[in-house]
C-alpha cells in the first residue's frame, strides 16, 4: 500500500497476518521494490528489505494477531516501524542474543528460528530501538540514513 502525499515524506503501510507463512516475506519484497521505485539507492533498499523481512517473519511466527510494517521515506532517511499488539517479549536482552530463539518446530523446519532476526535488523539499521511489554506488544523502530552507510559506525540501541 502506498499513501499519497504531496511532496513530503512517503509512507508505505503493510499489514501482516499472524501464521500466514505462505505470504511471509512478500510484503518485504514489495517494500524493497517500492523503495527502489521511489529512488532509494539499491544498497539502502536492500538494507530496508532485510529489516522488513526479519520484522515481517517475526509478525508471522510470533505475533498474536499480526501487525504492521510502516516505512517512511524522506529525502535523507528511511524509517521502518514494525509493530504488533502482543504477546510481547519477556526478556529483550535474551531475544537480542545471537542464536536465541523461541521459534516453534514448524518454523525451524522452514529455516526460520535461527536466532538471528533481531541481530540482522540491528546490523542493517543505523539506529535501532525496541520497546516491548507483555500484554501490550512489541514496537521496533529502525532508521537508515540514505547512502551514508558506514559499516564501522556506532549504532546505538535503546531498549525498554
Amino acid at each position: 500500500m502506498q499513501e499519497p502525499t504531496h511532496g513530503g515524506p512517503r509512507r508505505l503501510v503493510h499489514h501482516v497476518r499472524a501464521g500466514d507463512i505462505e505470504h511471509g516475506g512478500l510484503a518485504s519484497a514489495q517494500i524493497k521494490r517500492q523503495l527502489s521505485g521511489l529512488g532509494v539507492a539499491p544498497q539502502d533498499a536492500r538494507r530496508a528489505g532485510i529489516i522488513a523481512f526479519e520484522g515481517e517473519m517475526n509478525l508471522v511466527v510470533y505475533s498474536t494477531n499480526g501487525g504492521t510494517i510502516t516505512v517512511t521515506v524522506s529525502e535523507k532517511l528511511v524509517d521502518i516501524e514494525v509493530a504488533d499488539e502482543g504477546p510481547g517479549i519477556e526478556d529483550i536482552d535474551l531475544a537480542l542474543t545471537p542464536g536465541f530463539s523461541t521459534a516453534p518446530s514448524w518454523a525451524r523446519e522452514l529455516g526460520f528460528g535461527a536466532g538471528m532476526g533481531l541481530c540482522n535488523i540491528q546490523a542493517n539499521a543505523d539506529w535501532f530501538e525496541i520497546h516491548s511489554h507483555i500484554g501490550s506488544g512489541t514496537r521496533i523502530l529502525c532508521r537508515i540514513e540514505r547512502r551514508r552507510h558506514d559499516a564501522s559506525g556506532h549504532r546505538p540501541t535503546t531498549r525498554t
Binding site: 507463512i21 511471509g24 528489505g49 523481512f53 522452514l110
Partner: peptide, 10 residues
C-alpha cells in the same frame, strides 16, 4: 515461497 522473498530482498 519465503525463499523467493529472501532472494529478492537480498
Amino acid at each position: 515461497v519465503n525463499v523467493v522473498g529472501v532472494a529478492q530482498v537480498a
